[in-house]
Design a protein around this nucleic acid. Structure first.
Lengths: 131, 131
DNA sequence: TTGATACATACGCATACGCGAATGTAAACG
DNA sequence: CGTTTACATTCGCGTATGCGTATGTATCAA
């Protein structure tokens, strides 16, 4: 997760160097999100999501919490101050990106829909964390 | 170099996701540096340096200028404001990293040495750019 | 205990990288 | 001219990464 001192810059940037992982981080934002939502928003297969989440977890960028059958993922602030600053800017960048806004809109729509897709019926909704 | 809109985040982070490239960017800082200095500071073979510089150039992170036999490389500020902000933080991060400071010290020492290594004798010294 | 659900991981394959070694190229020098 | 110098690029190889598909695993329901 980190090297001898501070945070491993290489590892952080490798984690960020993939579109799917950036989209995942974007969707997490300040929330704790269930895997099934990622799958549904991205309209992709579940192993792909799990693999990228595992990558992010190994890089120390996210952490997972189990709740019954469901797994919730959320972003972890880097312990190193400079890494945290870069990471915060990246999240801000994501927040203002068109495509990323579209993803978040689809997630929000899905959560509040009166008739959510079958794949997420009964799934715990994303939880707001302390911003 | 960049996508339809703004800066390609993926490409930027892939460019940053390698130790050698981070070291190169660190050595450039606000200067314009000749290839031979990179080779000498890193004590490595020249093709390795050239390949990573080419990678950075393709990513739009650096630009090259020819001066006789020598090639000078310098950092290019991203056109996109958010990319520029992230990039600035990364450079600050580099500036405060121990190992990176060591590299810069070796470069400085080499430039001012009364008897520089044979490989850089006669080579144009790094030029300060408008900080 | 059996089955279903929600994820995680393994597998096989294709592509991207990183490396050193060899080769190509452009500029300066004679 | 040809040679040297300073870089760039190519080549062959090993490893990392991303993908879809198949399979494992943990939890819950019955």
């Amino acid at each position: 997760m980190n090297k001898a001192k501070g945070f491993d810059m290489e590892m952080l940037f490798r984690a960020l160097a993939d579109r799917t992982r950036l989209r995942l981080l974007n969707l997490m934002g300040n929330d704790e999100v269930c895997v099934c939502f990622f799958v549904e928003v991205f309209k992709t297969n579940q192993p792909k999501i799990s693999r990228h989440l595992a990558y992010l977890r190994r890089a120390g960028v996210v952490t997972a919490r189990r709740e019954g059958k469901w797994m919730h993922y959320r972003i972890v602030e880097p312990s190193d101050a400079r890494a945290a600053r870069v990471f915060a800017d990246v999240r801000q960048w994501l927040a203002e990106d068109r495509d990323m806004q579209g993803d978040r809109a689809r997630l929000a729509k899905m959560c509040c829909a009166p008739q959510p897709p079958v794949s997420i019926q009964g799934a715990p909704r994303p939880k707001k964390l302390a911003a």
